[in-house]
Design a binder for these strands. Sequence first.
DNA 1: TCATTTCGTAAGTCATAGCTTACTAATAAA
DNA 2: TTTATTAGTAAGCTATGACTTACGAAATGA
Lengths: 101, 101
Amino acid sequence: MTYEMKFDALSCPTRRSVFEKLRGGALSVGVLAEGVPVSRPAVSQHLKVLKDAGLVSERRDGVRRLYSIDRAGLEEMRDYFDRFWDEALDAYKRSLETRDA
Amino acid sequence: MTYEMKFDALSCPTRRSVFEKLRGGALSVGVLAEGVPVSRPAVSQHLKVLKDAGLVSERRDGVRRLYSIDRAGLEEMRDYFDRFWDEALDAYKRSLETRDA
DNA sequence: TCATTTCGTAAGTCATAGCTTACTAATAAA
DNA sequence: TTTATTAGTAAGCTATGACTTACGAAATGA
């Protein structure tokens, strides 16, 4: 649930591509495993990492499990970079001012 | 310079903490290495990864090298999550509408 | 009840990421 | 022109992360 886990979860290319597949809405494990160059169990393991990181959530539907994006978790990452951007820009502006002085 | 490299660069905790130290402005390698639980050469290696990823830039100042945040690279990451967030929210809204129908 | 489908878990393999120490290079300063 | 600072590079070690196959569990349908 920490930044730590979220960054780590998104660092693996195949895991991130699984995550990105969920942009359009919920998908089952089988569908997520299609087109991904790894085995279905590997996708399950990736989903566990994403879930533990708070980036996806799961709901059961018969024998299927439907995974979808955890919007709160995604929002954390968005906010992290928004704040970082603002702070870096402020620091840059200050550096210009002090240079003028 | 790709997303690939940026995500990978930010996945390592100590590397990210080095990156975050630069929020306030440019710093030398020696200063960046203070308080970080790894050796100075390790910090140099982290800086190389961050630089290759387009997240930091470097300028020489005598015998020092001052590293600072590459705002264009950081902006890419911010935009990635901004777009992702918007798309995920749209998909969610659509899912609510189709459920009503 | 038995077979199918869908999926998570266990166990083991292999590459590599992150670290270390030793060194080399470049600038500054005496 | 030596001596100190500062920092990047080389080489090697070690833990671990991303995969595989084999198996077990839960829901569905015959």
